[in-house]
Design a protein around this nucleic acid. Sequence first.
DNA 1: CTCCCGTTTTGAACGTCGTTCATTTTTAAT
DNA 2: ATTAAAAATGAACGACGTTCAAAACGGGAG
Lengths: 208, 208
Amino acid sequence: MTEKRREKKEELKTRLIAAGTELIQEQGLKGLRARDIAERAGSALGGLYTVFDDLDGLVLHVNSRTLKRLETALNAALPSSGDLEETFLNLSLAYLHFALAERNLWSALFEHRMPDGVAVPDWHLAEHAFLIGLIAAPLARQMPDTSADDIAIRARTVFSAVHGVIAISLEGRFVGITPALLEREVAALARLLATGLQKEPSSRPLVS
Amino acid sequence: MTEKRREKKEELKTRLIAAGTELIQEQGLKGLRARDIAERAGSALGGLYTVFDDLDGLVLHVNSRTLKRLETALNAALPSSGDLEETFLNLSLAYLHFALAERNLWSALFEHRMPDGVAVPDWHLAEHAFLIGLIAAPLARQMPDTSADDIAIRARTVFSAVHGVIAISLEGRFVGITPALLEREVAALARLLATGLQKEPSSRPLVS
DNA sequence: CTCCCGTTTTGAACGTCGTTCATTTTTAAT
DNA sequence: ATTAAAAATGAACGACGTTCAAAACGGGAG
């Protein structure tokens, strides 16, 4: 009957992740407290540390779940056609809408930092890969004579550019902007990237 | 002789900001400790709170100085010609080089978050404006029949896109990239944005 | 059912942090 | 030299993440 034990622990883990998710959603990553998480999950303070090494471990798992939901949202936004402009546009707007709808959880994905010398574990780094893949696939179709490495790098650039526009806006570091205008800017950038990259291989070498 | 008092306090403020700057440079924003700052500035712990409301106040002043140095670096990179592509390219590469040379201080500009409900003070928000202005000026010359508001918004989009590429890369959230490749990507994006926006007003309406 | 012992859960306790404030020290005018 | 106001000090406070000795639990043997 060592199975029941594993189930109990798994259930606690689930409750802790759920509690952490809710608390980040409500107060942002910065307001996350170990005591609040344990209380909401209905466990003692120490229980958290029987499941995770530390708070960072829990945040990583919350982010992992957020990434999975982001992945399904973006996959649902993919157009049936392979048209690059439509793909970039749909993906970018879906990404924007996800960020707006899940502000704090989305912010936690990029705000979170490991302690000083500690690196993000590989299993969690790998979970980000689909973001590149979604862009790399149509890009590779468009640029058949570019190496997979270069495609991946360029896809990351495309993602980062769109992400940057959304992130800077939601951080509120500059003067505010309405969601409608933000949507316009994201759409404009997505289109610009698509049309610009379509001409790239012939009109300009990748390395300049 | 109430003047000497003000000077003493001003000097303490300078030492505290210098100490904070060094410590952020060495260990990043996350490792910043009030006790370390006070010790390095040669004051008692409480002295910090006679000058600043809290640690956030000091970080804001460190960031303020970083922004000023960034501003002179970017101004120095502006080409004499008003050519949009050359302007974007030079600014983007100068921004990248600044970020690489002052990694932790540059990161602190965007990592730093105010406490839960507190907003960034206006005087510090205003210090970010030059980043937009540097891009808006040549953009306005290129698009004379676009409103100043729309120019500012589009300039912010351009900045955010380039910033995003650099920030995502330096955060090391995805698979690493060499500085040379990063430079290539930033340059490619800068050129894409310049050439794309030059055609924008005639070929495609700003609002779609 | 009862006892037992390995496992799990618990929350008091620890060290560290940002921040405060009673006390001491310094300052400058008398 | 005296003194009252101002500034500097660092011990103390409350809150945090994390640990761990102790209590509670679970299930197999008698």
